[in-house]
Every structure is written in C-alpha cells, then in structure tokens.
Amino acid sequence: MRAARLLLSVGFLKNNNLTLVLGIFLSVCWVVIAIFAPWIAPYDPIAQDVARTLQPPSFAHPFGTDNFGRDVLSRVIWGSRVDLAMGLGGVFAPIIIGCTIGLLAGYFGGIIDTLLMRFLDITISFPFFILMIAIISILGPGLMSFFIALALVGWVSYARLVRSRTLVLRHSDFVAAGQILGFSSIRIMFRHVLPNAALPVLVFIMSDVVLTILLGSSLSYLGLGVQPPLAEWGIMIAEGQNFISTAWWITLFPGLAIVILALSFSLIADGLAAQYKVSE
C-alpha cells in the first residue's frame, strides 16, 4: 500500500501528533488483546458456573460475573475478537465497491456518472439503519448477513468521497500525461487517480470502523447480529440490562470497551485529518 508507506515515510511521530499516536497505541492494544484472547482471558467466556452468579468485581473476577456465572472480564476480552472483526471486516466490501463506483462515475462522467449517482441516491434515500435491519431480517441474523447488508448499503459514502476527488483529479495534468503515454483508463484510474484520492478515504475508513462497530453491537443488542452464547459486547449489554440496578458491572464493562475501541479509531481519524489537513 503506497498510502501506508507514505504515512510511515513522512513520520507522524516527528510532528508531536499526540492524537494520532494515542489512537494507534490504543488500537494496537485492542488488536493484541483480540489476537491473544485465549491466553489473556482468565476463564472460558462461555463456561457457566451456577454457584457464582452475579458476583461483584473481586480479585477472582475483576469485572464480576453475570447471571450465568460467566466471567465478565473473559467475555469482554473474547468479545474484542468479534467486535474488531465486525468493524474491520465490515468496512472491507464497502471500500472496494464504493471506491470502484466513485472512480468510474468521476472519471468517465456523462451517462455513467448519472446512472451510478441516481443508483446511489436511491440507496441513500432509505434510512441507513432501517435498510440494514430490513436486509438482515430477510437474510436471517448472523455475522455473514451483517457483512452482506453492509456491502449493499455502506459503499455510498466511499463512492461520493472518491467521485468528488476523481472529478478534480481527472483534469489534472498527470492524468493527461498518462493518456499520452498510452495508459488504459483502468490503469490511470487505479494506479494514478485512486492513490491521490486515498487520503480522505483513509480518514473516513477510521470513522467508518467506529460506526460499523457501533452498528454491529446495536444490531447484536437487537438480536439481529451475532447470536448468543458467543461473547459480543452488544449482546452482553442486552443480557445485562435486566440486572442493571443490582449488577451494574455486567453492562458497564462491555459498554466501556465499546467506548474505548470506538475512541481509539476516532483518534486515528482525527490525527490523520490533522496530520494531512484533510477536511471532512
């Protein structure tokens, strides 16, 4: 990835960009926790212990236990796997579809642009969340349905972002130079226009990961996302809310986890935007 190499070569540490550094640090922490979950988590996340239900935080169970006697800390740690996978995996298809549609529309213009943009208008004319719920209801709840639904509706922001940059870049001189050198349109679009349009997209990806994680946990909370007994933060909050007055720890800790994970990616987005003066 040229964008990533550029990021490293410019050296974000030099500019004392604390926001970016903190964001990257927190995100890396979450990724490490997710990867090493089986070794970090003190208990099995789905092992029930009827003798130890609804125990408040203690040395044995730092985050307490839930109504089935499962260790909340272990469930939060294991949950990071599912939520990170949802966030990072969920933006994957929208990026590819959105960038391609945006490039095509912006570069060729004319009738192609009009058709693709009307298609985009139709997609965004439905409320995002309602459309997601509708698609998932048809496909049946689960992680795969969540990804498919996101692929169908999540691309619109990327398409708009890339199209607007492409509209400017297609008139730039280096595109003309590429045409003279006999490069194909596809080559010019993906090798020359896209990398130059990538920075705002990169910033938006970070915000989009946050939104996707929130969306995923919201849908799981509603019972449309990941299915119990799998540990996922949205499900944990949903299950814990019946006991909120007596056992606050069941909902508080997964809630905090969502906040911190979302915050870490938001910090990266803000840091990147500040670093490269991208206006959102």
Binding site: R2, L6, S172, D173, F174, A176, A177, G178, I180, L181, G182, R191, H192, P195, N196
Partner: peptide
C-alpha cells in the same frame, strides 16, 4: 493508437505532469 504510441509530449510545468505519489 498508432499516433499515441509514436508521438510523445512534454510540457511547460513538469511538476503537475508527474504523479506526486509515484
């Protein structure tokens, strides 16, 4: 295509005719 492969062009402001990210 015959013309394009055999006629090349250079310009007044070389800066903007080079892809800044390559």
């Amino acid at each position: 295509s015959h013309l394009r492969h055999n006629i090349a062009m250079i310009f007044q402001n070389p800066t903007s005719y080079l892809d800044p990210l390559m």
